[in-house]
Design a protein around this nucleic acid. Sequence first.
DNA 1: TTGTATGCAAAAGGTTTGCAATGAT
DNA 2: ATCATTGCAAACCTTTTGCATACAA
Lengths: 146, 146
Amino acid sequence: MGRMVALCRRRGVPVTAQRRAVLRALAGRRDHPTAERIHAAAAARLPGMTLATVYRVLAALERLGVARRVAHDGTGARFEIAEGAHHHLVCLSCGRILDLRDPALEALALPAPRAAGFHVQEVSIQFRGLCRPCRRKQPARERRRR
Amino acid sequence: MGRMVALCRRRGVPVTAQRRAVLRALAGRRDHPTAERIHAAAAARLPGMTLATVYRVLAALERLGVARRVAHDGTGARFEIAEGAHHHLVCLSCGRILDLRDPALEALALPAPRAAGFHVQEVSIQFRGLCRPCRRKQPARERRRR
DNA sequence: TTGTATGCAAAAGGTTTGCAATGAT
DNA sequence: ATCATTGCAAACCTTTTGCATACAA
């Protein structure tokens, strides 16, 4: 939070109540909420706040490097606080995205592919499978659906 | 292609001209096209084909295990032929997704996280950065935008 | 013949934008 | 005072769906 304020000051962009609210809504969660969920949480503290504003604020926070849009294969973008490199566990059944911070993985030296002149800036690993709740529900049959 | 036909027969689902067309459009490309691009390509061979059908066919191909929806952080899903495990190079500037097949990466034993009872089924690594064309265009400033 | 797939058009998300008013610095 | 941001509502884009028809097996 202080981080965002500092970054805003430095870049001369206004620190609004909406930006605080969205950041707070995002910082409080570990489940990579959708814009709509963020809106719900933020609007609870700041009634009257629009979903459109949430999208604009998220874009602003991304520009500041405070928030990040995570890669997924479902519908509706997911967001997270951008702090440190980490990887994701993605549930194929419910779409939930969990953080995975594993020193062993960080230590791992991934071969940096120079394929076709591509210049790598970030690496992120996605482990897809079933989260515990879904694993219990499904007897191990059928798969996927948002 | 023969693979899809065989799978269809086995499961008793019809092999239609549209399914062939979409599969052909997808098999011919290495750039993980959006549904709309696939539609354009498929409709060239099969005039009158609808975008709605492309979506339904893609869903069917996914069910058959012939096509796959790839994770991304932009708007509009991207698709690929599902053959063998491989990883992706994602361009932060133009959104292009390139395949990366690296034996060294396959050989790499990734620590399988049993975090919170999560059951891993697939692993995919995303290398994000700039593809060669974008790297030339941009003097290394600004970032992102579909 | 039977059941699924397709075309068409409409609906349902999710995300963006123009404009006037509001607010931060 | 000045310029970016917000609310509101409409526009946009992507994806899904109902229904009658067409088609594969």
